[in-house]
């Protein structure tokens, strides 16, 4: 696992985060979408892959961006922002996206391939962060409301220097849902 991670393109912006080792830490793969900073437990991530071609699937739930080909295996690509109901503050880049929905597929996302359960899923994120070791005592239950993020996808949070690491619940993230429910 960690070997694979070592080879991957990782942005090293958060070097100031104290990396502790030992039993009292948990490791997370972190990534960004808009201004939000997310993490997934490292055991739930299979690999990280740069921009795979996404084939859109008409009639699919809104949070599904399409399907991707990962070395012959076809995975569902879940759009992180859509899935967690993220209202991404509109940067110039994002606004373009909204205007040209059809161009969505051509926008280059990074793929976090997650899933130790039945079926791996590719989670589309904007930027990949570090693999972070976080001391257990800094991990807290999530607050009742995190702005822009549906609470049911959040398992824990972790306050880091000025930034809130939102730790996603991998099971909830992988669970298929009724498209109507999502859109409502």
């Amino acid at each position: 696992m960690s070997n694979e991670m070592a080879n991957l393109p990782v942005e090293s912006k958060n070097t100031e985060v104290v990396e502790l080792h030992g039993d009292n830490t948990e490791q997370f793969v972190t990534f960004y979408f808009g201004q939000h900073f997310f993490g997934l437990p490292i055991d739930d991530v299979i690999e990280i892959n740069k921009a795979l071609d996404i084939t859109p699937v008409p009639l699919a739930p809104a949070y599904v961006a399409g399907v991707v080909n990962l070395r012959g295996q076809i995975l569902t690509a879940v759009h992180l922002a859509q899935k967690v109901g993220l209202h991404v503050p509109l940067t110039a880049e994002n606004r373009d996206e909204d205007l040209e929905q059809n161009e969505e597929s051509s926008k280059k996302y990074n793929n976090v391939i997650m899933g130790s359960r039945e079926e791996p899923v590719s989670l589309l994120v904007e930027r990949i962060g570090d693999v972070m070791s976080v001391p257990r005592n800094k991990i807290e239950p999530p607050p009742a409301i995190i702005e822009g993020v549906d609470a049911k996808y959040v398992s824990k949070v972790c306050k880091l220097d000025g930034e809130l690491l939102i730790i996603l619940d991998p099971v909830a993230m992988e669970r298929p849902e009724n498209s109507n429910e999502r859109q409502a």
Binding site: V57, P58, L59, A60, P61, V64, V67, I74, L75, T76, V78, E118, E119, V121, P176
Partner: peptide, 11 residues
């Protein structure tokens, strides 16, 4: 098709 998509009857 994956779990998220297999309910779509058209595919």
């Amino acid at each position: 098709l994956g779990n998220h998509l297999k309910h779509i009857p058209a595919f």
